[in-house]
Amino acid sequence: MTLALDKPRSPRRPAARRGNFELASWLFMRISGLALIILVLGHLLIMNILDGGVHRINFAFVAGRWSSPFWQFWDLSMLWLAEIHGGNGLRTVINDYARKDATRFWLKIMLYVSMVLILALGSYVIFTFDATIPAN
C-alpha cells in the first residue's frame, strides 16, 4: 500500500508559503476571547442582572454611564473586539459551509460590509454622544 503524494521530494511546499494570516487569526481569537470574557460578562451582569437589570435602562441611564471615560473605553473596546472576534468566527463558518466560490465570496462581502458599518456607527455613537440632545 503506497501513499500517493504529488512531487514527494519537492523541496518547497507551496501551501506553507501563504503567510501566517490564519495563525494570527487563531491567536487573535484566543487573546480577544480572554478579554471579552471580562468585558462582555461584566456588561451582561450590570445591564441584565444587577439592580433591576434591563428594567432600569433608558436614555438617562446611558447618559450617566457614558459621562465616565472608564465606561466609554470599556464599551469602545468591547465593540471592536466583539465585532472582529465575531466577524472572524463567521468568516470561518462561511468558509466551512459555503459550497460555491461565488456564494462564499458574496457572503463574505456582506459580512465585511456589515462589520465596517457596525464598527463605524458604534464608534461614532460613543465618540459623539450628547446627553443634552432634545427629547424629541
Binding site: 446611558v62 457596525i118 440632545i133
Partner: peptide
C-alpha cells in the same frame, strides 16, 4: 454575533433622540 448587529443599531438611537431610544 447577529444579536450584536441589532444591539449596536438600537443603541445608536441615542444619537437620534432620548424618546426614540427609550
Amino acid at each position: 454575533f447577529f444579536f450584536l448587529f441589532a444591539h449596536v443599531l438600537d443603541t445608536a438611537l441615542v444619537r437620534v433622540s432620548p424618546n426614540a431610544y427609550d
